[in-house]
Amino acid sequence: MSTEKKEVQVQGSDIQAERTRPRRVYTPTVDIVEAKDVIEVHADMPGVDESCVELKLEKNVLTIYGKVEAEIPENHRLAAAEYGVGDYQRVFTLSDEVDREKIEATVKNGVLRIVLPKAAAVKTRKIAVRAEA
């Protein structure tokens, strides 16, 4: 990806362990936006709320996992399907510039929003220049 910058990389499936639940796992679509002080990740995870989404940070690998319980209407049969219901998983590698202690995440209307604040050390600082006496 040429548009991707060095700060946030999306990894494939390097650290996948075997799951115990036999179900489909989808990769949620994400938007990553970088502002001056934070990097925000928004992931579409319909069917997920705060009780069933899990964020795990291991060293510099951030894993999102969302469990979805399929709601099947009783006595109905599926006539047409454009989407499948399953869990969500995606793995990101964080660079050193993210402040790991201050990562925050919220879920609203099936969208997971992760705020990754940049560490103070890497924020751009302006250095005042004084005239020498």
């Binding site: 579409d44 709601e71 109905h76 599926l78 454009e82 989407y83 209307n109 099936g110």
Partner: peptide, 26 residues
């Protein structure tokens, strides 16, 4: 979904009822 029509729709039917579920995150 991406590339398909958005938002994706699932259709469940029975003799007296139809249930349409649509993913509209956000």
């Amino acid at each position: 979904l991406s590339g398909c029509e958005f938002p994706p729709i699932n259709l469940w039917v029975s003799a007296e009822n139809t249930v349409v579920t649509i993913e509209i995150p956000g």
